[in-house]
Amino acid sequence: MKMDSNKTLDDILGLASTHFKVPRERLTPDDDFFKTLGIDSLQALDLLTKLENHFRVELPDYELQGVTDFRTLAERIQARL
């Protein structure tokens, strides 16, 4: 059964919070995750791997080009569930 899109977004925020040790309440769906998490491009790859492992999907890097907010990231993942 396909996961609910709100649950997908919530899982992403939870994973980002845990992995980068940023309080969950500081993260909102439309945040620029590079800025909010304070991460660089290599750390963004870690986030991508975490998300792929959690959702058991493949997310080609080029599909994420220009994606900087959690909500769009969730949409891209949701499209592959």
Binding site: S41, L42, A44, D61, Y62, Q65
Partner: peptide, 8 residues
């Protein structure tokens, strides 16, 4: 200065 310079 791209946020994702590794992307092709």
């Amino acid at each position: 200065t791209d946020a994702q310079p590794y992307l092709p």
